[in-house]
Amino acid sequence: MIEFLLSGPDRLLPYLAVSAVLFSLGALACAIRRNAVGYLMGIELMLNAANLNFIAYGRFRTSEAAAQGQVATLFVIALAAAEAAVALGLVFAVFRTFRDVDLEKVRTLHGD
C-alpha cells in the first residue's frame, strides 16, 4: 500500500496527505471535544477526508474510475447532509433534556 502510494502516479500523494490530516483532525475532535457541536464537526471532517480520497483516486486513474469516485462522493455528501440533520436533532434533544450540549453530562445510558 505504502509502496503503491510512493511509486504511484504523480501528484496523488499530496491529496492523500491532506486527506489523512483532515481525517486525523476529525478523529481528534471526536476524541477530545466535549461539546456536541464540535463533535459533529469532527464527524463531518472525517467524511470529507473520505470524499477527498475518492476524488483523488478517481482523478489519477481511468475516466471510468473518475466517474465512480465522483458518484460515490455525491452519495457521501447526501448522506452527510442527512446525518447532519439527524445529529442536530439529537443535539437539540440532548439540550432539551440536559439543558447543555456538554457530552460529558450525557451519562445516563446505563439504565438506572
Binding site: M1, A27, A31, L103, V106, R107, T108, L109, H110
Partner: peptide, 25 residues
C-alpha cells in the same frame, strides 16, 4: 464497558476503528 457515558462509548468506537485500520495496514 457499560458506563453510560456517551463520550466513553465514542472513545471505544474510535479505538475499535483505528485498531481495525492498524490490523489492515
Amino acid at each position: 464497558f457499560q458506563t453510560g457515558r456517551s463520550l466513553a462509548y465514542a472513545g471505544w468506537t474510535l479505538l475499535a476503528l483505528f485498531g481495525a485500520l492498524a490490523l489492515l495496514l
